[in-house]
Design a binder for these strands. Structure first.
Length: 232
DNA sequence: CCAGACGTTGTT
DNA sequence: GTCTGG
DNA sequence: CCAGACGTTGTT
DNA sequence: GTCTGG
């Protein structure tokens, strides 16, 4: 799955990679993005242009009476999102990309203990999560925009750590994912596990657990990045 | 017809 | 144990 | 996802 | 909003 991630990409890099306007200085580095917090997404507008926007992480279906459901809809299963009532309209018309530098997964160990891992690309390039966004009209008249990250089965590398992982798209897939023209089969074809050999995983200190701790210290590895030989 | 659910994760 | 807030 | 709260009364 | 169960 994906319950925490990082994004420390410059506005310039974001602009170039996603072909979108991003104001310099408007995207502070984040090392511990948690559900409910603002997240930068990239979406396509009706006129075909792309837009970067800040939305809350945790999707609130437009018909929901209670916005707190967003708290649990931080992920959407890629296998079923197209049909599920909570996600299908967003899947049809409101797909987005969620730029990230990497993400965290907690591996269950013996007993109740958990080991956090930081997972990133092998070459330092950004990751782009496949996401859905939604709009919710509050009774008080305000609108809240939210998003969820699609998940898929783990690749070989992730398997020992966790049984779900976020859907990560390559730049060649951005257009098809964002375009309203893409058909369901075409979209489904994009929602596959990111290749093992293109990611790097390393265990990190439990500092990640401290809410409000959002500093590069979180990324200090406990040991060298693990290529997958053994990681228990 | 109306009422109530609608989700993911992990855990048991 | 379970819920809420970040 | 994890961390932290989870309650009432009265008093300052 | 839309579907399912009663």
């Amino acid at each position: 799955m994906c319950g925490r991630f990082t994004c420390f990409l410059s506005a310039e890099l974001l602009s170039q990679l996603y072909r979108v306007q991003v104001e310099p200085g408007s995207v502070p580095p984040r090392y511990n993005i948690a559900p409910s917090q603002p997240v930068l997404i990239v979406r396509e507008l009706p006129d075909g242009s792309r837009q970067a926007a800040w939305v809350h992480w945790g999707l609130i279906p437009s018909w929901s009476k209670d916005p707190s459901v967003g708290g649990s809809l931080i992920n959407a299963r890629s296998e079923t999102a197209a049909e599920k009532p909570s996600f299908r309209s967003a899947f049809r018309r409101r797909r987005c990309l969620i730029p990230a530098s990497g993400f965290y997964e907690w591996q269950k160990k013996e007993g109740k203990s958990k080991q956090p891992w930081f997972i990133t690309s092998d070459d330092g390039r950004p990751l782009s999560f496949a996401g859905l966004w939604e709009q919710w009209h509050s009774p008080d008249g305000s609108d809240i925009e939210t998003c969820a990250i699609l998940t898929t089965s783990p690749n070989e590398r992730m398997e020992p750590i966790h049984h779900r992982m976020p859907v990560i798209l390559a730049p060649e897939s951005f257009r098809a994912w964002l375009s309203p023209e893409s058909c369901p089969d075409e979209l489904q074809g994009l929602l596959v596990p990111f290749p093992s050999e293109r990611m790097k995983c390393y265990p990190v200190r439990t500092l990640v657990n401290r809410p409000g701790n959002d500093s590069p210290e979180l990324l200090i590895p406990l040991k060298e990045p693990d290529k997958g030989e053994d990681n228990q």
